[in-house]
Structure formats: C-alpha cells, structure tokens
Amino acid sequence: MKKIFLLAIFSFTISNLFANEIIKNEVLKNLRCLVCQGQTISDSNSEFAQIIKSVVDDKIKEGMTKKEIYKFLSEKYGDWILFNPPIKKNSYILWFLPYLLFILGGIFLYFMIKKRLMGK
C-alpha cells in the first residue's frame, strides 16, 4: 500500500516537473535578454540571462503562473522584456490594426468584384 502511495507521489512529482519544464521553456522563450542584441533569455548565455533563468525557475516552483511571471518581470524592467506585447493602451493599434485591415481589404474586394462581376 505504501509502495503504491509513494509511486503515486513520485509520478505526480515527475509529471509536475515535466509540466514545469514545459512552462519554463515557454516563458524563457518569451523574455528578451536586455543586454543582448535581440536574443531571448532562453538562447542567451549572458550573466543576466542566467540570473533570469534561475529566478523564473524559482517563481515556477513557488507556483507562479506564466502571466504572473510576465507581470512581475515587466514591472521591474518594462514591457520591453516581453516578446509578447501585453494588450495595453499603447498596443491597441498593434493588435487590432491587422484585423481591421483584413476586414477593410475584404470590403474593398467585395465592392470591386460586385462592380465588375461578369454577366451583369
């Protein structure tokens, strides 16, 4: 009985570690190395990147979610450190303009085709 219990805990920990690893990889890929030229924290071997990797590792173990980690780091270093720009007043255009353009393009095409439809 004890064996089964231990095994359950063991596999739970392993799968948790595994899940943590995936989360960590994703987070590190979304952070910018501030002292590098455009690299992510995940790819960088700089001292700063090593420190951030360690801190993110700690935060995940403490139970912080991805969103909370991003918020924590962007509060300290500014939004520049995030490769996924948060949807704020200064990024509305960034996030919504593409869709707006797509729709406008569609409308433009619709009227153009309607005007010049064969068989009219």
Partner: peptide, 13 residues
C-alpha cells in the same frame, strides 16, 4: 551572491 535579488530592483548590470 547569486544575483537573483537584483531582479527585484530591476537591475540588469
């Protein structure tokens, strides 16, 4: 010693 505390201050170098 490990530099991790500096992150809380937004220090990067």
């Amino acid at each position: 010693t490990d530099g991790k505390k500096s992150v809380n201050f937004g220090v990067y170098g």
